[in-house]
Design a protein around this nucleic acid. Structure first.
Ligand code: ZN
Ligand code: ZN
Ligand code: ZN
Ligand code: ZN
Lengths: 151, 151
DNA sequence: ATCCTAAATGATAGTTAGTATCAGTTAGCA
DNA sequence: TGCTAACTGATACTAACTATCATTTAGGAT
């Protein structure tokens, strides 16, 4: 009856920081809860704006800790500041809506299998990979068809 | 006898710019030939340093034209300025050596096929994808095994 | 060949995104 | 309750661009 889902409660980002041996401060509480309560991917500057009571340096430092710990993904959106999103699954890839910037996470064994098979084709030793799928998300598709019906 | 390779000569980056309706200037000649004669991927700032006679704004502008035209790839190396490399194949992906930054290009139909099959799994409409494989390149592997033999 | 003009250049100033410094504050432990 | 290393945040700084604009130039017209 003591299933894994009961034992392992969702670890908050603040807990992640504690587990790194870092102190539980009010600034860190503010940053991590803002990230967890926010609905989507965000940039460092956005977070700074949303948390004027926390110093910029602290916001950036906290993000860096979380990225290093693997609790946040850093997504390089070309032309502009990188976005961050909570890493919910260990190894995964991202979908990014080119219209609205919504970020999704996915994992598919086929992708991983193909990666392994590429080892033969590629010179040197593979140490990792990254992949982003660019999409127009459903809500952007919906609003697109709205405006096209006006024309 | 008039094979395609004879008709279609390797289009230089300067020609790419001309084809965009841009003028053939000495600054553009300097930038494009430096890129073509350089051996590997480069950053914008590197190019500026190598071409002190060309204004920074012009270097950046020229790079942007070439990226827009698809003649250069812009690679987001996390933490730092993006690197650029000449796009030799239409659609392709990159290998990046984490040790020395060497950039390679590859294309494999399996990857593209998997992408198409992912359409079912993913919400929204796929518009494109990107993929980077991180490697330790052969020359970095060689120098690694050198130093380990010292220990 | 020379003139004309829009295109291009490059010095400089400005912006954005992030890092370093460091005096003051605070968490967590004794 | 006090101690001290960890942490904070104001400020200054740097890196990587981007905007401005007076000056120069490519390339077509004559
Ligand atoms: Zn969207
Ligand atoms: Zn993967
Ligand atoms: Zn290498
Ligand atoms: Zn592809």
């Amino acid at each position: 009856m003591t299933t894994e889902s009961q034992v392992r409660q969702e670890p908050s980002l603040l807990t992640t920081l504690e587990d790194l041996g870092l102190r539980k401060t009010s600034a860190r509480y503010a940053v991590t809860s803002r990230i967890e309560n926010g609905s989507d991917a965000f940039t460092a500057e956005e977070l700074c704006r949303q948390l004027p009571e926390v110093g910029r340096a602290t916001v950036y430092r906290t993000i860096r800790h979380l990225v290093d710990a693997g609790a946040l993904c850093k997504l390089p959106i070309l032309d502009g500041a990188p976005m961050y999103s909570i890493a919910r699954v260990e190894h995964h890839h991202h979908t990014i809506c080119s219209k609205c910037g919504a970020v999704g996470e996915f994992r598919h064994s086929t992708v991983e299998r193909v990666m392994r098979s590429l080892a033969k084709e590629i010179d040197g030793q593979i140490t990792g990979h990254k992949m982003e799928i660019f999409i127009t998300c459903n809500s952007c598709l919906a609003s697109e068809s709205d405006s096209s019906s006006d024309a």
